[in-house]
Amino acid sequence: MKILVLNCGSSSLKFKVFAAPDLRWLAGGTAERIGQPDSLLRMAWLDGAGEYPGAAPDHQAALRQVFRLLAQHGVVADPVQLSAVGHRVVHGGDRFRAPLLLDAANLAELRQLTPLAPLHHPANLRGIELAGALCPGVPQVAVFDTAFHHTLPPRAWRYALPEWTWRDYQVRRYGFHGTSVQYVCRRAAELMGRPLDQLNLIVLHLGNGASVTAVQGGHSVDTSMGMTPLEGLVMGTRTGDLDAAVPFYLMRHAGLDAAAAEHLLFFDSGLHGLCGSSDMRAVHARAEAGDADAQLALDVTGYRLKKYIGAYSAALGRVDAVIFTAGIGENDADMRRRACGGLERFGIWLDAGRNDATHSEARRISSDDSPVQVWVIPTDEELEIARITLELTTTA
């Protein structure tokens, strides 16, 4: 039994193969810059790795090449021999509140959700369609980033807008990064040696996209991202929290139309808007060289993180652990220090040596006597998708 996990983006295709039922990693990789002359497919397997330039003129060619390589290296002899394919799907709307075993009817319903995530949804659907064509008869499972957050109470998901905006147009807080948060919470419970249903956790998923989630007893009760992945923390190119009147002001006085305003908020803001770079590593390097704009970008980002930790500490009432995950969360000691510094009265006591140590494994970075534990836990969304896919297809 082998499970393929696909994460299809507009110009990328990430994949991993796991053996079932123990979910051992067998192979994985990424096709990048799909459709461009410099497209590149990277793949690793148990006893090797390789790079294949020009192997991804389009998504279909990329996936076909993936299957050829999986067969060549003895991972999957034939795609139809797969037990299941699990797909990351960014948005399930209000209709899909749990992982879904796909069929023609619910796939048609999924297509109707494209307006809720126009940047991500078409690519996610493309991955599902390609896998269905290349793996006929193999069960396909959609795992939604939004599903974990459907436990939000109305006080957290409802915006202060008229009821018709929710009823007729589904305007509400959905939240994202749910698959990552779900995985990290389960790992935290294992590492802390306590049942997840007894823990209150604050999870900071910090990458180019970033969010923070308050988790009570294993259930999401508040999260920083909203109807779209724009709201909340400062991100690589996205604003995060913003006065909703700002776009209207710029449309009236700077001549922006709706498309230009949307592009500004999603692609020209965040770290990029503050200092001209969306790569946190480059921002740190410039700040260390004395660049005032880069220093400000770090200050704004760290301050926003700290505010959310404080707010979610109040929302939860009791916090057992703060968890950092994803690229920045796992590797940026300075940003973790900025997020936690000065929160000693909240019971958060960071250990400087542990925080600064370079390590790829899960580790505790708070002091031994810190009332609130602080952890760095690498995320593995693909493993979580594989686990969910296995569970759904073996019980269906």
Rank of each mutant, 00 (worst) to 15 (best):
P378V: 02
P195W: 06
G270F: 13
A105G: 10
P154V: 07
L296F: 11
R167E: 15
L350T: 06
Q140A: 03
W157I: 01
P162F: 08
I365E: 05
V75H: 05
T223R: 05
V283K: 03
V372C: 00
I377Q: 05
L13E: 11
A210L: 04
T179E: 12
N355Y: 13
A292E: 15
S278I: 05
G86I: 10
L264P: 05
G329I: 09
A214I: 01
D243P: 01
L230Y: 06
T228R: 01
A321K: 02
P57S: 04
D257P: 01
A62T: 02
I385V: 10
T389P: 03
R286P: 02
G175I: 13
S12Q: 07
V181S: 12
G218D: 10
D22S: 06
A396M: 04
Y174L: 07
A352I: 05
R318H: 10
P378M: 10
L116H: 02
Y312L: 01
V234K: 09
E382A: 08
G273D: 08
A261C: 07
L242M: 08
G290H: 11
E262T: 15
S367L: 13
V372P: 00
A282C: 00
N208C: 01
L250Q: 02
G86V: 05
G93K: 10
R194P: 03
L130V: 05
G28T: 13
H205N: 07
L298R: 00
D222S: 05
H59N: 01
A294F: 08
F144L: 02
D145S: 00
A245L: 07
A188M: 09
A27N: 06
A357M: 12
A294Q: 08
A321M: 03
G175V: 12
L4E: 08
Q198E: 14
A282L: 11
L63P: 01
K14L: 13
D291V: 04
A55P: 04
H91V: 06
S12W: 14
P21I: 09
L116K: 00
Y159P: 03
R364K: 14
R97E: 12
N7L: 15
D299F: 09
G327Q: 10
E129F: 02
T395E: 10
A297C: 12
R186P: 05
F266S: 06
M43P: 10
L250D: 02
A61E: 11
F267Y: 15
L296Q: 12
L230S: 04
P21Q: 03
E361Q: 14
A285N: 02
A386E: 07
S313F: 06
L343S: 09
H219M: 01
D368V: 07
G74I: 12
G329C: 11
G74H: 13
A261E: 09
R42N: 14
Y183A: 06
L107V: 04
D94T: 11
A20F: 11
L110N: 01
S313K: 00
I128G: 01
S11Q: 15
R33I: 12
Q295T: 07
R126N: 09
S277H: 12
R111P: 00
W157P: 01
E361S: 14
N355Q: 12
G92F: 09
C135W: 02
K2T: 14
A84F: 07
A282T: 10
R338M: 08
A49K: 15
A147D: 03
Q65N: 14
G93E: 06
L100E: 13
L390T: 07
C135K: 04
A285C: 01
R126I: 08
E262D: 15
R338L: 15
R173C: 10
P371F: 08
A352C: 04
